[in-house]
Design a protein around this nucleic acid. Structure first.
Lengths: 125, 125
DNA sequence: TTGCTCCTCACGTCACGTGAGGTGGC
DNA sequence: TTGCTCCTCACGTCACGTGAGGTGGC
């Protein structure tokens, strides 16, 4: 029994270290620790080192998806809490969240602002 | 001779206080001081109070226009410096700045990201 | 005295980046 | 000893917001 087995390197679906989480999801170690500090991730501890479960992995993917959609970490935190409260696996219920509609409105306004800026910038070319 | 005349309240084109600058351009006092701290504005001093000249007003309008176009304060600083170096009145030379093309590219990418996010969000509605 | 305007710190926000300095196992 | 991975502070970035605490002239 060597470290590879203990840390889950050759058993997908088991515990992962920060380094593995970082590489697999293309996020920095700092980001993983920051999300933990903000209560978005809750890795276990192997002494002083972090160990991420399969649930943590699903949470991280949900976080990254929501981030691409332009939600703040605070909003993402609420959504994860709500999912936990309703006993769900993270990442399934975006369609039932009120925040979706508000975010669409928000992004449409951002888009109009960018379009106006582009129109003006192209006049300067 | 009362304060209205000294401070330029009834003589447009003369010195303005922070309060007047703030109201006329819809920016906070903090913003005006922040722009000064970053070297974008250079008001004179009447003792401890700031006095903004007509040149400062043109600079501020240029700053606000560039901000709407999505430039960073650091980029705007460079543009103002360049204009000063070339002996121009602030706000005239945007069409000759190399930054315009890069900013168009940047905003077009931001727009695509927003479009992708909107497409995904609308699927959840 | 009240009320308005001006001021200077200086901490808080957002989502991290970036060292500094140290540990543990091969 | 070198090299890799993990860790904890803690300051820096961006563009300000937001008090705290004080001044000056009507």
């Amino acid at each position: 029994m060597h470290m590879g087995e203990i840390r889950g390197l050759d058993r997908p679906g088991r515990q992962m270290t920060t380094g593995e989480m970082s590489r697999e999801h293309q996020v920095s170690l700092r980001t993983l620790r920051f999300y933990e500090d903000r209560g978005l991730l809750h890795p276990l501890r192997d002494g002083v080192s972090r160990l991420y479960s399969n649930h943590d992995r699903l949470s991280l993917r949900f976080i990254l998806r929501c981030r691409r959609l332009g939600f703040t970490l605070s909003q993402i935190h609420d959504m994860l809490d709500k999912q936990l409260f309703e006993g769900e696996t993270p990442g399934l219920d975006l369609s039932r969240d009120k925040k979706v509609e508000a975010q669409i409105t928000h992004l449409e306004r951002r888009r109009r602002e960018i379009d106006e800026a582009l129109t003006e910038l192209r006049r300067y070319e």
